[in-house]
Design a protein around this nucleic acid. Structure first.
Length: 435
RNA sequence: GGGGAGAUAGCCAAGUGGCCAACGGCAACAGACUGUAAAUCUGUCCUCUUACGAGUUCGAAGGUUCGAAUCCUUCUCUCCCCA
């Protein structure tokens, strides 16, 4: 059963803007549309998940999604939303990143379902053969500098701040970015019958440069559709935590941490996220919200959200593990429950918890607490940090608080003769394994 | 090439010879409270040190001085305007 793409985005609050006529064409025919991904890392992050979901909704509505991996554009650097010039990546790194991202995208979209199967393209493929002269003759000729300068992404960088703060300036390379991206759209329009480019609202300027190029160069018609940028209710950037980005790759962000990320969403944000990141129906979501409102402390909404996304990005088994680990680490998880766990259970439950192996002989000799926290495990940055943590009553050993800086840790502190669980504050845990 | 402005701790930003490990704000970390929240309050926030204290910092390198983030010299980098 096909859904109505635009309607679907609308009620999920995923629609920011469209060029005129976009909705008409989307409801009247099967459209091929694409979204570009920047290969700046070898994994996509939760920030990219919005665009992945957009493509997924697009496909579920019967349209044909294309994910464009920006091998070429990644070499240039998009100035949108950036206050400073970007560092460029070398070609080998970009190649590697593209391959990894491609593998992740393949998990979400259906690449084998007939005429609206998803596909992946890489703009490096059509840019690598193109010469600079060719580009400025055939592409640059059609767009004026005045037009390009009027884009927000450019304007913000060129504008002088009102008097005091001077602007950062911008290289020719970044200035050209929108044209390069615009040519992608043109190329796909010309060769792959692509009529729509989607993206975050910060991409609006780049996308419309594409539609403009199509119009001026070939008198063609193409459309743009953008999704709102996700903001957290406290105004900070979505998709990051104090320890960095949240990635889809389990090697970078373990399923446990991934689950925790969603579980810790603010109430207001959770309402927003559950619409965007899950495929739950409107009825299901409203029911969950009603249930959540009865007892916010239970965090039903966050739990449903975390379970749904973790299951899709990782696996249902990963969700079970994450819940179990959370129960032990945050529930009534006292030292007794910890002791009851078998070695195998400990291993699997704490799989996503950061850990470090140290030698039994070292522990038998006894390790001063601060040394264990800093030098031996790296759980704390320095002994100074470790000391402060312990003194401030923020440290726990096997779930029991201690403020004894002089404590010497030895084999008597082992759980199951193999583990020691270190805790910082309420949320951070670290597992020491003995070998 | 000419003229101007600037570089201070994660970020913003005060400080223009001793009272400066450097005001203030943000971010971050911990505690209380709580829902593994938010808001609020408290503490911490260069490194080492139980503490007293010690050691390295203010773009880089030299210099003046009893004493420099602050003065001088050279260098590096950034931004703006003009050509």
């Amino acid at each position: 059963m096909k859904t109505n793409f635009v309607e679907e985005l609308r009620w999920r609050n995923m629609l920011h803007d469209m060029t005129p006529g976009a909705e008409e064409i989307l409801t009247s025919e099967m459209v091929t549309g694409y979204i570009g991904f920047d290969p700046t890392a070898d994994s996509l992050g939760v920030g990219n998940l919005v665009q992945i979901m957009t493509l997924l909704h697009f496909q579920r509505a019967g349209h044909k999604p294309i994910a464009l991996v920006g091998g070429a554009t990644g070499m240039v650097g998009d100035p949108s939303g950036k206050s400073a010039e970007r560092n460029l990546l070398d070609e080998t790194t970009l190649r590697h990143n593209q391959n990894c991202q491609q593998a992740q995208l393949e998990k979400f979209l259906d690449f084998n379902c007939g005429e609206n199967s998803a596909s992946i393209v890489n703009n490096y493929d059509w840019f690598k053969e193109m010469s600079f002269l060719e580009f400025i003759r055939d592409v640059g000729k059609h767009i004026t500098v005045n037009y390009m300068k009027a884009k927000d992404s450019v304007k913000k960088r060129l504008e002088r701040g009102d008097g005091d703060d001077a602007s950062e300036g911008m290289s020719f390379t970044e200035f050209t970015y929108q044209l390069v991206q615009g040519y992608d759209f043109y190329y796909l329009w010309k060769n792959k019958n692509v009529k729509l480019q989607m993206g975050g609202s910060d991409q609006w300027g780049n996308i419309t440069t594409g539609t403009e190029l199509i119009k001026r160069k070939d008198s063609g018609k193409a459309w743009a559709l953008t999704t709102p940028l996700i903001k957290k209710s406290d105004g900070t950037k979505f998709g990051k935590t104090e320890s960095g980005n949240i990635w889809l790759d389990p090697k970078r962000t373990s399923p446990y941490q991934f689950y925790q990320f969603w579980l810790n969403a603010f109430d207001d944000d959770a309402k927003n996220y559950i619409r965007i990141f899950t495929l739950k129906t409107k009825e299901e979501i409203e029911a969950l919200e009603a249930e959540h409102a009865l007892d916010p402390g239970q965090r039903k909404l966050q739990k449903a959200l975390a379970a749904d996304i973790t299951a899709r990005v990782h696996s249902p088994e990963a969700v079970d593990m994450a819940i179990e680990a959370a129960g032990i680490l945050f529930g009534k998880g006292t030292i007794e429950t910890l002791r009851k766990l078998s070695v195998e259970d400990m291993e699997s439950v704490f799989e996503g918890v950061p850990s470090k192996v140290i030698l039994r002989a070292e522990l038998e000799a006894g390790i001063p607490l601060l040394e264990l926290l800093a030098d031996k495990t790296g759980f704390q940055e320095s002994r100074g940090d470790a000391r402060k943590l312990v003194q401030q009553n923020g440290f726990s050993l096997n779930k029991e608080k201690t403020t004894d800086i002089g404590l010497v840790v030895n084999t008597t502190h082992l759980l199951n003769d193999k583990f020691i669980l270190l805790g910082q504050g309420k949320q951070k845990n670290f597992l020491v394994k003995i070998d």
